[in-house]
Simulated scan of single mutants.
Amino acid sequence: MTTIDYYNTNATQLIDRYDNANMSSLHQLLLKHIPKNSSILDIGFGSGRDLQFLHDNGYDIWGIDPSAKFVENAKKRFPSQQNQFLEESVPFDRKDIGFPKDLDVVITIAIWMHLKHSKYKDVVESIVSVLKSQSTVVISYSQGSRANDERYFEEVDLDYITELFNVKGFTLVEMLTNNDSLDRDSLTWVTVVFKND
C-alpha cells in the first residue's frame, strides 16, 4: 500500500482523529508570523483542520493534497471556495495547478517526513514558485520511531531544507519543538518558520 492509498483508505477515521488533535501551539505560531488577510497555501492539508483555523481567522485559504478523499472533504467543508482545493502532490509545476495569483504564505504540516531527500530541491522550487517576493513558509514535521506504520517515512534533514531555502533568500526565524498532539510518546514535532523579506 502506498502512502496515498493509506490516506484514501483511512480517510474517515483520520479526518476525525486529526480534527480532534490539540494544535494550539502550532496555531498560535501561525498567528504570530502570518499577517492578517494573508493568502495561504496549505500543502498536504489532510482533514482541513488547519485550513479551518486559518479560515476562521480571516485568511484566504488554498490547499493541495494528493488524497482524493481529503480534497473531497475540503470542498464539502468550504463550499464557497471549492475551486481553491486541488488534488495534487509535491513537487508540482505551478502551470499545472493554475494558481491565479502569488500567495503570501505556504504551510506544510506533517508532509516532509514522507519525502525522499532527493525530492527536497524540487519541492522547495515548487513552494517558492507560488510565493510573493516577501513571504513566509511554515514547515512542521515529526521525529521519532513509528512501529508498524504502512506509510513511507524518512528522517527529515532540516539542515538541507534550510540550505535550500537560504539559496532562495529565505532565513530561518523561529524553531519550535512540541510533544505529539495525538499523545504518541515516541514522536516529537519540530516546526520551523522561514521568511523572505
Rank of each mutant, 00 (worst) to 15 (best):
N166H: 14
K168G: 06
L131D: 00
W189P: 06
V123F: 02
D60I: 13
G98R: 06
V190T: 12
K76M: 13
S25P: 06
L41C: 04
N196R: 15
S133P: 09
H114R: 07
E72L: 09
F45W: 04
N37H: 14
I43K: 03
V167M: 11
S135N: 06
I61H: 10
E155H: 12
S67Y: 06
S38N: 02
V137M: 04
I139D: 00
D56T: 14
P79F: 03
Q82T: 10
N37G: 05
V106H: 00
P35A: 08
K95L: 15
K119M: 13
S181K: 06
S129W: 00
W189V: 03
W62D: 01
I64C: 05
E72N: 06
T177Q: 14
N73Y: 07
D50H: 07
M113P: 07
I107Y: 01
D65T: 03
D96Y: 09
E72C: 05
F70L: 12
L172I: 07
K95P: 09
D19Y: 04
I109N: 11
Q52V: 11
S38F: 00
D102Y: 15
E163D: 14
I64Y: 02
Q143H: 12
S38Y: 01
G48F: 08
D96I: 05
T177A: 09
L103M: 05
W112D: 05
L29E: 06
F194N: 04
F99C: 02
D65I: 05
L54E: 05
S186Q: 12
W189N: 04
S67A: 11
K36V: 08
T188R: 13
D50A: 04
Q13D: 15
